[in-house]
């Protein structure tokens, strides 16, 4: 059952990921990106990380994708024109394909040792809100605070830039 769902969501994620770059209509691309993010969220759930899945949906599918949709709609992009085959495109495809093959070879060659921690039983509270909160606000408090400080600076910067007149 688990394998079945993994294959289902993995195929959906890959298929919609391909569609994002293959579709000519930008709105359709955004829709397939949403689908891809959803399939990834489902994979998070299968990795016993429901909180990450919810974050994935609320942040990406719920907020950022809506922003994407707004931008695409406001720019009123028409269908992307076909440019024909150029040397640059062939080189790009070769480089991308080469990187993919290299990653696949490296990943396949890694043997996970039995004592590495990847294969041991998961603790009961793994992936719960409580354990994430504890590690975020106790173990990794300083990086968390620095990240939130950076975000705060970015928000203030955005507000300042959006203001037409500064007193």
């Amino acid at each position: 059952m688990e394998t079945f769902f993994f294959i289902l969501f993995a195929v959906v994620a890959i298929f919609s990921g391909l569609m994002v770059i293959l579709k000519k209509n930008p709105i359709a691309s955004v829709m397939f990106l949403i689908l891809a993010l959803f399939a990834t969220a489902a994979l998070y759930v299968m990795l016993m990380a429901p909180f990450m899945a919810a974050i994935q949906i609320i942040v990406y599918a719920g907020a950022i994708m809506v922003l994407f949709l707004f931008v695409v709609m406001l720019l009123n992009l028409s269908k992307i024109q076909e440019g024909g085959v150029s040397a640059l495109k062939i080189i790009g495809a070769l480089v991308a394909g080469g990187i993919m093959v290299a990653i696949a070879v490296v990943v396949r060659s890694i043997a996970i040792p039995a004592d590495s921690g990847f294969l041991r039983e998961l603790p009961a509270e793994y992936g719960t809100v409580e354990s994430i909160g504890r590690s975020m606000f106790i173990t990794y408090l300083l990086p968390f605070e620095i990240a939130s400080f950076l975000l705060l600076a970015a928000i203030i910067g955005a507000v300042v830039l959006a203001k037409k007149k500064l007193e």
């Binding site: 709105i27 829709m31 949403i34 429901p50 909180f51 919810a54 974050i55 949906i57 609320i58 599918a61 719920g62 907020a63 994708m65 809506v66 949709l69 707004f70 709609m73 992936g127 719960t128 809100v129």
Partner: peptide, 24 residues
């Protein structure tokens, strides 16, 4: 779900996408 309340907030944000889709 362990994230019950949060889950509801997450899935209801989907409605926005459907509405934008309908409008566009």
């Amino acid at each position: 779900l362990n994230i019950g309340v949060y889950y509801v907030i997450a899935v209801t944000s989907l409605v926005v996408i459907g509405i934008l889709m309908a409008g566009w």
